[in-house]
Write a protein that binds this DNA or RNA. Sequence first.
DNA 1: GTCTATAGTCGGATAGAC
DNA 2: GTCTATCCGACTATAGAC
Lengths: 236, 236
Amino acid sequence: MAALGLRYNLVKGPAGERAKKRLIEAGLELFGRYSFDGVSTRVLADRADVNLAAIQYYFGSKEGLYQAVASHIVKKVKRWLRPALSEVERKLEEDSLTGEQCFSLLCNLLDRLTTKLLGSPDSKKWVAMVVREQIEPTDAFEILYEGLMKPIDLCLFRLVGGILGLGPQDQETKLRAYAIKGQLIIFHVSRAELKRSLNWQAYRSEELKAIRSIILDHVRAILRMPSIERGHDTIG
Amino acid sequence: MAALGLRYNLVKGPAGERAKKRLIEAGLELFGRYSFDGVSTRVLADRADVNLAAIQYYFGSKEGLYQAVASHIVKKVKRWLRPALSEVERKLEEDSLTGEQCFSLLCNLLDRLTTKLLGSPDSKKWVAMVVREQIEPTDAFEILYEGLMKPIDLCLFRLVGGILGLGPQDQETKLRAYAIKGQLIIFHVSRAELKRSLNWQAYRSEELKAIRSIILDHVRAILRMPSIERGHDTIG
DNA sequence: GTCTATAGTCGGATAGAC
DNA sequence: GTCTATCCGACTATAGAC
């Protein structure tokens, strides 16, 4: 993907804003599901209910639209994630927290991530795009990594490190944090497989509760935090 | 470049098998990385060093080749996974195993999976295809699910259930087993991110050892098995 | 069985009317 | 800014020579 550019930043009238917005929404919907090559400009324009030429006009090219979608994802996800991340960062800088305090913050963050990642219908669209970019990164990977994954990772590393009594850049800290993240991601990525296996129709609040409860229990065990009684209350 | 007809007999029978084999290899390589739509028949034929028309001749269509690649994956993965799975199934049917025995079998299986999934260069190709099929399933999903994921899942469920004292179809069993699987998968899927974060060049034996050790430690903690000795290397 | 040539379609991108 | 008409290259698939 060649670096084409910032032409979509050109100032256009208010009507143009609508077209841009709708194209980005269509891209978010379709690129994630069908991949960049799997969706044509005609289908994009059709879904966005704008003219075919609008893609070139506003984003320079199909690739420009794709990257604009990536930027949109970052902006959108940050909107609901920033409060949680800022809170953690603020507390981390106030004073050195105890392991228990870090753990409590971690649980809170994971809870929020789980709910959004699995519960929100939007998440399906953009996580798919992130996963595709992980398989075969394009220019959009940089946008997604710097704006989205890196901040989350950093926060997780500091909390997990705080619990383990290790630095946030310590290899063990990072590996354990990734493993924890994996337990969350799997329920998104293997959604089709899991629903089939468990005869679930969708992730509703019942199912989300069961998943959250399992994840928290595991995280507690992994980080050797004093465990509450093993939950059989997870059966929803 | 056309093959010079030095030995007319060589051009006939076995040559077809060679073309099929090479096309499947090319498909395995390219479909996983670039998606179905991301790779053209021309590129496939070129990479396979066969004629363009060979795809239609041997597989009916590009889609036929894609499904043949899926079947190939199942066959190939089963070849190295079957021994491990059969062994577990045999032992499970012999007599009711203790939790410790189940745990030992589980560690062994996870170890084998980790090594192959993260260490083998081939795995990168086919896991990518499986992940893409999870995002947006096509007809190939059925092939991959029935032949590959289901057998692995079943085995995991029985072992995890055996350790927890629950049935293999119990919801808690399945959720915990999935969470465990997630810890493994994440190191494959987020490979790019992780390498960047840890300054790793690749997954070499050093790095694999670190990952394996973390995963086993976590599984032990999750399933409340006594951590007698760190490392308990089952297989290299 | 293998390969070339090509048919028929669809892709991204553009020119120019309004 | 918006939209229609269109260019042209790339795509899958096929027909038929060898």
